Amino acid sequence: NKFNKELQWATWEIFNLPNLNEEQVKAFIDSLRDDPSQSANLLAEAKKLNDAQA
Rank of each mutant, 00 (worst) to 15 (best):
S37F: 10
D35P: 00
F15T: 15
K5L: 03
Q38L: 08
Q38P: 01
K5Y: 05
E23Q: 13
A27H: 13
K47R: 12
A44N: 09
I29E: 03
E13S: 03
N16T: 07
T11A: 09
N19F: 11
L7N: 02
L49T: 06
R33E: 13
I14A: 02
E22M: 14
S37K: 08
F3L: 14
L32R: 00
W12V: 13
Q8M: 12
D30I: 09
I14D: 03
D51G: 06
Q8P: 02
E6P: 02
N21A: 06
S37D: 06
P36W: 05
I14R: 00
A10D: 03
E13N: 03
K47Q: 10
E22A: 13
T11L: 15
N41K: 11
E6G: 03
Q53H: 05
A54Q: 13
N19I: 01
F28R: 00
I29W: 04
N16L: 08
S39H: 12
F3G: 14
E45S: 08
K2N: 15
N41G: 09
E23P: 05
K2S: 14
W9F: 10
I29F: 05
W9V: 10
L32H: 01
R33I: 15
Q8T: 05
P36I: 11
K48P: 00
V25Y: 03
Q53A: 07
K2E: 15
N41Q: 12
A44I: 14
Q38R: 10
L7P: 02
P18H: 08
L7F: 08
P36E: 03
W9Y: 10
W12Q: 15
W12R: 12
F15S: 15
D34L: 13
F3E: 15
V25P: 00
E6S: 04
F15M: 15
K2T: 05
L49G: 00
L32I: 08
L43H: 02
R33A: 14
P18I: 11
A46Q: 01
L20T: 00
W12D: 15
W12T: 15
L32G: 01
S31V: 10
P18F: 08
V25D: 00
A40W: 11
Q38K: 14
N1H: 03
I29D: 01
E23F: 11
E45Q: 13
N4E: 15
E22L: 13
I29S: 03
R33W: 15
A27L: 08
P18N: 06
N16V: 05
A27Y: 14
F28K: 00
N50W: 01
I14H: 01
N1A: 03
Q53G: 04
D30E: 11
N19P: 00
N19M: 06
K5I: 04
K2D: 15
S31R: 13
K48Y: 06
W12Y: 11
S31N: 11
A27M: 13
D51N: 08
A10E: 03
L43A: 04
N16P: 01
K48I: 09
E13M: 06
L7I: 11
D30W: 04
I29K: 01
E23D: 15
L7A: 07
D51H: 08
D35T: 06
T11N: 03
N1I: 04
A52S: 10
E45F: 07
A40Y: 11
T11R: 05
D51W: 07
K5E: 15
P36A: 04
E23R: 10
A27E: 07
S37V: 05
F28S: 00
I29H: 04
Q24M: 04
E13H: 05
Q8G: 05
N41M: 11
K26W: 13
D34R: 12
A54K: 11
N41I: 10
Q38G: 07
P36R: 02
R33L: 14
I29M: 07
L7Y: 06
D35N: 09
N21F: 07
A40E: 10
N50S: 11
E22H: 13
S37G: 08
Q24H: 02
D34S: 13
A46T: 01
K2R: 10
L42S: 02
L43N: 01
D35Y: 07
Q8D: 12
L7V: 12
F28N: 00
N50I: 01
K48L: 08
A10F: 15
N16K: 10
E13Q: 09
S39W: 15
L20G: 00
S31Y: 11
D35K: 12
L43G: 01
W12L: 13
I29L: 10
T11G: 04
S39L: 05
Q24E: 04
K5Q: 14
W9G: 04
N4F: 14
E23G: 12
N50A: 04
A27W: 14
N21S: 11
Q53I: 08
Q53K: 05
F3I: 14
K48A: 09
I29V: 06
K47Y: 13
A52I: 10
A46I: 01
F15G: 14
E13W: 10
Q24L: 03
L43S: 02
E45M: 08
D35G: 04
N19R: 02
V25K: 14
D34E: 12
A40K: 13
A44H: 11
Q53R: 05
Q8W: 14
A27R: 12
S39I: 10
E45I: 10
N19Y: 12
W9M: 14
L7E: 07
I14L: 07
N21Q: 08
A27F: 14
E13A: 07
L7R: 01
A44K: 11
L17S: 02
A40F: 08
L42W: 05
A44R: 08
A52T: 09
D34P: 02
W12G: 13
E45H: 09
A44P: 02
D30S: 11
E23S: 14
P18Q: 10
L20A: 00
N50D: 05
L17E: 00
N50M: 01
S37P: 03
L17H: 02
L20I: 04
N4A: 08
D51Y: 10
F15E: 15
L20F: 01
D34Y: 10
D51E: 09
S37H: 07
N41A: 11
A52E: 12
E22R: 08
F15V: 14
L20D: 00
N4Y: 14
L43Q: 03
L49Y: 04
S39M: 10
E22D: 14
K48G: 05
W9I: 13
T11I: 15
N50H: 03
F3R: 15
N41E: 11
P18E: 09
N21R: 13
I14G: 02
F3K: 13
Q8S: 05
I14S: 02
F3D: 14
L17N: 01
N21E: 07
K26G: 10
L32V: 06
W9D: 15
A46P: 00
L43Y: 04
S31F: 10
A27S: 11
Q24G: 00
L43W: 03
E13T: 06
K26P: 00
P36T: 05
K2G: 15
K47G: 05
V25L: 06
E23Y: 09
E22Q: 10
V25I: 09
R33K: 12
E6D: 12
N1F: 00
A46W: 01
L32A: 04
E22I: 13
R33T: 14
I29R: 02
A54E: 10
K26R: 08
E23M: 11
S37I: 05
I29N: 02
A40M: 13
V25G: 02
F3W: 05
N50Q: 02
N50P: 01
A52W: 09
